Each structure stands twice: as C-alpha cells, then as structure tokens.
Amino acid sequence: MTDHVRIGVLGAAMITPAAVIRPARSSTVAEVVAVAARSTGKAKAFADKHGIARVHDSYEDLLADPAVNAVYNPLPNGLHGKWTLAALEAGKHVLCEKPFTANADEAASVARAADASGLVVMEAFHYRYHPLALRVAEIMRSGVLGPLRHVEASVCFPLPMFSNIRYDYSLAGGAMMDAGCYAVHMARLLGGEEPEVRSAKALLRGPSIDRAMRASLRFPSGHTGSVHASLWSSTVFKLSMKAIGENGTLTVLNPLGPQTVHRLSLKLKDKRSSETFGKRATYDYQLDAFTDAVLHGKPFPTTADDAVKNMTVIDSIYRAAGLPVRRPTP
C-alpha cells in the first residue's frame, strides 16, 4: 500500500493547474510528478511553467513510469476512454475529466475494466465534493421537501471560440457533453433516480454539434425534470439547480464553482433559510477524495458505474434531439 499519490498528467490542458496542480501543492499526500503531451516541447514548456519534474516523450512512456501511480486524464472527450483503459492496464489509478467517455457503451467498457482492476477510477465532477453539494444531497435524502414534483439544472456559459475542441464532433464535442454532463449529473442528484428522456431540442453549430441543448426528463416516481446546457445561446450565463416538492423548494446558485460565489436557499411552508459555505475550491475537495480513495479505500460518489448512468442519459438526449451519439476518437 502506497502512502503517497504520485500523479502523471496526460496532455497540457488548460484545466490542469486548477484541477490538480494547485490542489496538490497544498496536499500532504499528493504530488504531480510527470507530464506528457502531444509534443515533447509542449510537455517541457508546461512542466517548466508548473514545476513538474519529469517530462515524457509520449503518453505510453508516462504510463510505464514506475514513479507514477495515478493518472489525471484531461484529454479531449473522445480520448478519455482509450487512455483511461491504457492507464488501468498499466496499473495506475485514474482521475478522468468529465464527460467520462464518448458514450455509454464506452463508459460501460471502462467500468468493467475498472471493476476488474481493483484500481480507483473517479470521474472529475469536482462540484460533487464541495460542502455545498454535500449539503444538497443531505437535504434531498432528508425528505424535507416532501414528494418531489420537479427538478431542474442549468449550466450555461459563453464560449464563442468556435475552433475550440468543444465544437469538434470528431473529438466528441458538444454543449451537452461539456456543460450538459454537469446539468444531467445535477438533475440526477436532485431527482434521486435514473430519469427517462422525454424530449430534447438543440441549437446547432454545424450538422452534428449542439451549441445549446434543452431536455425534459421524467423519473420513475413520477416527478419531472429539465436540463439546460449552453456554450453559445441567448442564455449567456446561468449556473443553477432547483428541486420543487410538495412542502417547499430548494434553489442553488452556482453549484459548479461555489468558491467564487454561491447560495443555497430553502423555502418551506413554515420557514425560509439560506446557507453559504467556505471559499476552498471544489478541486481541493476532489483531490482529497481521490487520495482518500487511493490510499485508504474510502468510497466516493462519482464512480465509473455512476458515469455509465450519466452517459446513458446524455446519449438519450442526443437521440431525442435527432443528433448522433458521440463516438470515440479513432
């Protein structure tokens, strides 16, 4: 049993400093020790900028490095599954960026490999590890809202850079993949069950890429749901989730990045209350959970099996909108 999580990073993604490099600096049990990118020059520049000791010429070389016992995978969506599987084959734990894979079938393949390996595979839904989301889950479990009527989640932000990989179908891009995977995950958290997709409508950027998506859901117990995701639409910026029950309403402002600003509001028949939490970043809590799972076997919510369920809903939304399900990048 190792007493330290030594992370190798696949690629030089912009999210990496916030997601693992800065959190690791304040951790006593985690360290980013290596990086590989599409070119050695790019990897070296990234390593020099962020103080990473080891640079590898390829992803394969990084996975073969005995100094690395865990991998952070922030590659484009269509490559998540391939390189998570490769990391598992190399005996490495994996923190994989969302969305977990290109589609539910690929997610199921990775989940089977994760189960067989005995290694930790965590989908990087960082928001889920913040005290705000933990409190939301507690409220929903308590039943204080009474029987649920409706839940909704919106993750909308402007990204008008249309050359960005999020608009590339060959890399499994799209608003529902990038922003919508959060909205679906939040709706599932609030709804407490796995929903059926009743309808979906996309705004397009090209024939197969959604720049925005809305979908209607229904849960087995009868309550409804809606999700809204946008990278470019008239809804410029909206980060929220809401649950409406017979006894009251839970509303959350900015569940995605609560370290900047947030609010949890609970309105019941006989009282109203609001709560806020600290400024520690979601990514710090996520790394704590990852290292606890690796070092101590502590359970965590964003498992590979959970990822299969999330990708199943995403695939159904694409089908309901008349768009093709995303495919792994060859």
Rank of each mutant, 00 (worst) to 15 (best):
residue 315 D to F: 03
residue 106 E to R: 00
residue 156 C to V: 09
residue 309 K to M: 03
residue 213 M to Q: 04
residue 133 A to W: 04
residue 20 V to P: 03
residue 8 G to I: 02
residue 186 M to E: 08
residue 321 A to P: 06
residue 107 A to S: 14
residue 51 G to K: 11
residue 158 P to A: 08
residue 264 L to Q: 02
residue 64 A to T: 04
residue 199 S to G: 09
residue 139 I to M: 10
residue 80 H to E: 04
residue 212 A to D: 07
residue 106 E to M: 07
residue 308 V to A: 01
residue 224 T to F: 11
residue 105 D to F: 09
residue 228 H to Y: 11
residue 234 S to D: 15
residue 242 K to V: 14
residue 265 S to F: 07
residue 96 C to L: 06
residue 150 H to N: 10
residue 167 Y to N: 03
residue 124 A to V: 05
residue 160 P to V: 00
residue 214 R to S: 12
residue 24 A to F: 08
residue 126 H to R: 14
residue 183 A to F: 04
residue 76 P to C: 11
residue 32 V to S: 04
residue 84 T to S: 09
residue 308 V to C: 01
residue 108 A to T: 08
residue 305 D to L: 13
residue 38 R to T: 13
residue 17 P to R: 02
residue 46 F to I: 03
residue 257 G to N: 12
residue 302 T to Q: 05
residue 58 S to C: 05
residue 16 T to H: 00
residue 103 N to V: 03
residue 223 H to W: 11
residue 127 Y to C: 09
residue 235 T to C: 11
residue 81 G to I: 05
residue 146 G to D: 09
residue 206 G to D: 08
residue 109 S to I: 14
residue 140 M to K: 07
residue 53 A to M: 10
residue 43 A to I: 02
residue 29 V to F: 08
residue 248 G to S: 06
residue 26 S to E: 15
residue 226 S to I: 01
residue 186 M to C: 11
residue 6 R to W: 01
residue 165 I to N: 12
residue 57 D to A: 15
residue 173 G to A: 05
residue 149 R to Y: 12
residue 118 G to A: 08
residue 4 H to V: 11
residue 17 P to H: 01
residue 40 T to S: 12
residue 196 E to T: 12
residue 70 A to L: 06
residue 181 C to H: 06
residue 35 V to N: 00
residue 289 A to Q: 01
residue 75 L to V: 10
residue 244 I to L: 15
residue 141 R to L: 10
residue 23 P to T: 00
